[in-house]
Amino acid sequence: MNIFRLTADMTHLMSVIVLLLKIHTIKSCAGISLKTQELYAIVFTCRYLDIFTDFISFYNTIMKVIFLWTSFSIVWYMRYHKIVRRSYDKDQDTFRHVFLMLPCLVLALLINERFTFKEVMWTFSFYLEAVAILPQLVLLQRTRNIDNLTGQYIFLLGAYRALYILNWIYRYVTEPNYVHWIPWMSGLVQTLLYGDFFYYYFLSWKNNVKLQLPA
């Protein structure tokens, strides 16, 4: 475990905490895409199929449980909580899951490290995570008023992905035979998708004005 990896995981954890804070304290999920949250629940379910079969470390298992538990509870809150669900902007959040999931599944069946069920699901989770933010970015662009917590949530998600790239570089340099093209390439694509958002986030931060994406 290197410092980049630990910071990445903690940033990921913080993003989830920020989102849950918004849901719990303000009882609002305004500006949050349920489609993206559902895709994340699918991503973690497919990736962590090894949770009961392969023990890596106590840290690893705990974090997997946290990401599974929180992703499903966020979806539950947005769909079923009687107050939170009222703030969900269904008409703006129109992205279709299938358009993202189907190509990712086909790609996972074609390009993987090993053709086994668990391995294909693991690969699929990386391809899907790379594009899972798209419904959220589309919703963000449609939302005129982006509140601070939503902006911070997406910023932390993007930062987590960028830190993972540093972790991969560090591991590639320090560990022999550490080469993993599938997480690298999908991670790179995922991080690039945040580029535009980062640009406007820093601009609003620098000029001390409310974050707003151009239409």
Binding site: D50, D54, N60, K64, N167
Partner: peptide, 10 residues
């Protein structure tokens, strides 16, 4: 194995 080492990431 080098294969397993990618799965130690979250």
């Amino acid at each position: 194995t080098s294969h397993g080492s990618s799965h130690d990431e979250l």
